[in-house]
Design a protein around this nucleic acid. Sequence first.
DNA 1: CATATCGCATACACTAATGTCTGATTTAGC
DNA 2: GCTAAATCAGACATTAGTGTATGCGATATG
Lengths: 195, 195
Amino acid sequence: MVRRERAVRSDAIRNRDAIIDAAARCLASNPSATLAEIAAAAGIGRVTLYGHFSSRQELTTAVLERQMHLIETEMGTVDLSGDVWVALDALVRSSWRLLSDNNILLGVVEHAVSAEDIRDSHDRPMERVNALLLRGREAGTFRRDQSVEWQVASFYAILHAAAAEVRAGRLTEAEAAMVVPQTVRAVLVPAGVEG
Amino acid sequence: MVRRERAVRSDAIRNRDAIIDAAARCLASNPSATLAEIAAAAGIGRVTLYGHFSSRQELTTAVLERQMHLIETEMGTVDLSGDVWVALDALVRSSWRLLSDNNILLGVVEHAVSAEDIRDSHDRPMERVNALLLRGREAGTFRRDQSVEWQVASFYAILHAAAAEVRAGRLTEAEAAMVVPQTVRAVLVPAGVEG
DNA sequence: CATATCGCATACACTAATGTCTGATTTAGC
DNA sequence: GCTAAATCAGACATTAGTGTATGCGATATG
């Protein structure tokens, strides 16, 4: 820890957050967004960005960490112990957007951060989804004629599709709140029964 | 047409095809693959590539055109007039991989080719999917409580997820042939009924 | 209100990818 | 087998993104 004569200035903190925020948005819609674009989106100069993050990697790592923290916080509040359909709905509604963004980010930082950080950011939230899917499967509530791996993959695919549609303006927030849980349920309903 | 003293050499034709092929593969797995990587994947020198395509844009355009042609050819043979479930299965089985690749390509060439070419490559195959989805919906066979736009989006999302899983080695060809049609059906089955 | 801190603009070096030019070498067509 | 056509390797110019250095101006903090 460095001893400071004065506290960190408030505008500096605001700008730092604004940068991470802008980076998350820019990179989600264009994985090869430049630092100049991100700085512009954050409403600051390009050089100022380097005052907060000394390299592209440092920035993407910060974005990944924030994203991971947001997901942990968000998912942590969801009760996954009751009825699996209810739990699934709650999980999807609370985190579909975050999970989608995170998945895109993982592609962006693939060769820029350590393999451990990647695994962490990928496996941690995946773990919860996986556990819930397994529980529903063992209870006979979810379909069992497909591998869990594929079910997780299609789960994420649907979240990602919804996020992309919303970003493109072809789907409203309200519609997404309806169709995303609907579609996820449809994928997991046992063939030949109702959901 | 230029009058040629000799026919185009066979190795030149082979190399040109190899380049387009390699480009399709490379760009599908890494949208920002360099021309050097593509040339290497095609087994030729980087400069030779420029002998066939004078710019990156010219190459990506060629890839897009070939992909569009492949899709037209492949989808053209599928009979979409009978039972909608049968037609859906046939459509998915014949073209899920091509449609996925094409969707990735569209992202790659987004700012590199004309908007018309983009629309063409996007709307043409989409039209068939759309038409089939509409027919199934009007017949009451597919679910009607979601917009067709969203159904098309989730349709593509599932194909893309499968292609990515196969590419990553987490899903075999045989498994994909099973789960992709299964999952697409699940998304379109009316809520509360069987598929 | 004083000043350390932060923002910002210009300028510059470095790197990687793109695209061009050349001349030597191989290969397919006739 | 002769020749045109194609491949190839190396060098080079250009461009775009990245990262650094500097000096001035703005501002939040104490």
